[in-house]
Simulated scan of single mutants.
Amino acid sequence: MVRGKTQMKRIENATSRQVTFSKRRNGLMKKAFELSILCDVEVALIVFSPRGRLYEFASSSILETIERYRSHTRIHNTSTTPESAENIQRLKEEAENMMKKIDLLETSKRKLLGEGLGSCSIDELQRIEQQLERSVTKIRVKKTEVFGKQIDHLKEKGKTLVAESTRLSEKYDSYSSQQANNDDRENVVEVEAYADQSSPNSYVETELFIGLPDTRTRRISPNLTIN
């Protein structure tokens, strides 16, 4: 049995209308899903039932898709009033003037680098030369200023090193004097000890004989002789 062509008008029967809505809604969701997969497109579908119930489908994020739609409509559906057209024309002219200035700056830059001088006149070459001389003068002044700051910094660093060296030298001299005093005290103690051992009351036996060979004696002590 061949189905008849459905007339595109509101279904009067509430039950038939609800059945048709459910069937076609599911088919619409399926078609949206297939379209997003097969064609790799961003799809967002929003449906409200007669009772206000929400049905939705989105291939990514429905909020992002809605925001994208709003941005697109703001850009392409902006009303072109005479004032807006005048502003657009003015912006175009400013852009053109800016591009001309950029071209002039690029040309001047190349000439300062020594490029594209073939079409320059004598006067223009002299102006370029004077400009370069002024630039070199400014660069030299700045270089001298930087060198001066570096020299001052090195001088301050040198003063700090000299002060540190002086402090260490004084500390070393103090340590050396203290060490010398300790050595002197040790030498005095050793001399005193040696003097105590070498007093006159101590006698040492020697091999010295006084007198003729027959009568020589060996001195042992000041009060004792041996024949």
Rank of each mutant, 00 (worst) to 15 (best):
I139P: 00
T166C: 06
E93D: 08
H76R: 04
S108P: 00
E156C: 05
L117G: 01
Q179C: 04
T65N: 10
P50F: 02
I66V: 14
T137V: 09
F147V: 15
A180M: 04
R185F: 07
S165W: 02
A163W: 02
Q150M: 03
E115G: 01
K155C: 03
R90S: 09
E56M: 14
I46N: 04
D183M: 10
E67T: 10
T160A: 11
T65W: 08
L125R: 05
S165T: 09
E156M: 12
D123V: 05
D173Q: 01
E94L: 12
E156V: 11
T107D: 07
S176L: 02
K109Q: 09
E133F: 04
L125C: 02
R110S: 02
L161V: 03
Q126N: 12
L161W: 03
E164D: 02
L117N: 01
Q179D: 02
E42L: 07
L132S: 06
T81M: 01
E124L: 10
L125K: 13
T107H: 08
N77Y: 06
R53C: 04
I102C: 09
D183S: 11
A58E: 02
A85W: 03
V47E: 04
D103K: 15
E67L: 15
E170W: 09
A95N: 12
M98T: 08
T144K: 12
K101V: 06
S79M: 11
G148N: 14
Q131L: 09
E42Q: 10
L45G: 00
T80N: 11
R140V: 08
E170Q: 14
K149L: 13
F48R: 12
S79V: 15
L91E: 12
S169K: 13
V141T: 11
S169D: 07
T80H: 12
D173K: 01
S79K: 15
R70M: 04
F147A: 13
L113M: 11
D152R: 13
K149F: 03
T160G: 09
Y69C: 15
L104M: 11
V136Q: 13
R51G: 11
A180W: 01
G116W: 03
S49N: 00
V47A: 07
H76S: 04
L112K: 06
T80W: 12
E133D: 05
E67M: 13
E170H: 12
G158L: 15
L104Y: 09
R53L: 09
S121T: 15
S71P: 01
E83F: 04
S79L: 15
C120S: 08
M98I: 05
E83G: 00
K159R: 08
A44K: 00
K138R: 15
T144G: 05
T80P: 03
A58Q: 06
G148F: 07
Q126Y: 07
G52Y: 00
R51F: 05
Q179N: 06
I88G: 01
Q150H: 02
L105T: 10
S177W: 00
T166H: 06
V162A: 07
S108Y: 07
T73M: 14
T81R: 00
Y175I: 02
I62G: 01
S108M: 09
E170A: 14
E164F: 01
I88N: 05
R167D: 02
